[in-house]
């Protein structure tokens, strides 16, 4: 007797479960076997990375190692071809878009400082402060003393209090970097992804930025991508070196910078 394949019971749920097992972890951010290719180029290749709650981690690596792409994947800008990206124990980030991920509590500072140039410094921060983000919520929102108190606090932390009424577009490069870090803080995320915070800064500014990040790391989990080894030394945290889309070496800065392969591809002899 012939069996019509359409009549057969196919347990679709079970198949899906095999494909995508529910991963539950203790870590804040858990990347496992993540790969993504652009036009055949493997930007991220079987990358695995675990960030514990409250941890601060520095990511180093040569250009094209996949540092920014990794951040794109975590924040939902890029969807990985394979692999798991789990946030806060059980939330599958690969299924969510940028907005949803931002609202879960992942904030991001871009490599090139990106602030809203035709808004004032204080308005930039005000928009970032945690509050109702729906259209009608913002349309009918009234002046909130609570929000502005938070804005004052943040402007104090990032030392832009004197510039609060200037247009963000008129700030210097370093000030824009700080404003963006301030906006990140205003979002009060669980995890901050900070891409090259010290780029284009003077030594004094770099030192101040390191202090600021260390301060932030007391209450938040932070992932910092940076090229400046002096800056990373000042942070004094666990370091991960990426190369060709996967982890090359991981550990203390001394251990990583002593690693033969890291010297080969990144630090140079």
């Amino acid at each position: 007797m012939l069996i019509d394949p359409m009549d057969m019971h196919v347990p679709t749920e079970a198949v899906q479960a095999i494909e995508r097992p529910l991963v539950v972890t203790q870590s804040l951010l858990y990347l496992d076997g993540v790969s993504v290719s652009f036009d055949g180029f493997r930007a991220i290749n079987n990358l695995s990375l675990v960030i514990a709650p409250g941890e601060m981690r520095a990511i180093i690596g040569p250009n094209g190692a996949g540092k920014t792409t990794m951040m794109d994947i975590i924040t939902g800008k890029t969807k990985p071809d394979t692999g798991d990206v789990i946030f806060d124990g059980q939330i599958d980030l690969t299924q969510l878009d940028e907005t949803a991920i931002a609202n879960l509590g992942i904030g991001r500072k871009f490599q090139k400082p990106t602030v809203f140039e035709s808004h004032t410094v204080e308005d930039n921060v005000e928009m970032a402060v945690k509050a109702d983000r729906t259209v009608f919520g913002t349309l009918f929102s009234r002046h909130s003393a609570e929000i502005w108190k938070r804005v004052d606090e943040i402007l104090g932390i990032v030392r832009l209090g004197d510039h609060r009424r200037r247009m963000a577009g008129d700030l210097s490069h370093g000030q824009k970097q700080w404003l963006e870090i301030g906006m990140l803080l205003a979002q009060d995320p669980k995890l901050l992804l900070v891409d090259e915070p010290a780029a284009g800064m003077t030594d004094v500014e770099t030192g101040a930025t390191a202090d600021l990040l260390k301060d932030i790391a007391k209450t938040h989990s932070v992932v910092v991508v940076e090229h400046d080894m002096g800056f990373i030394r000042e942070l004094g945290v666990k370091v991960t070196c990426l190369h060709e889309g996967s982890v090359l070496s991981e550990g203390t800065l001394d251990k990583v910078s002593a690693d033969e392969r890291v010297i080969e591809v990144y630090l140079g002899r």
Binding site: E98, N103, G107, F116, H119, R133, T138, L139, M183, Q187
Partner: peptide, 29 residues
């Protein structure tokens, strides 16, 4: 509309749409 907080978000969308998304605003709405 333009002087409300939503108006600020509209200008933010105009100037840096992706950034607005990463701040947690639903740009399409």
């Amino acid at each position: 509309i333009v002087t409300s907080k939503a108006g600020k978000i509209l200008i933010a969308v105009r100037d840096a749409e992706a950034r607005t998304r990463f701040l947690g605003y639903r740009v399409e709405n």
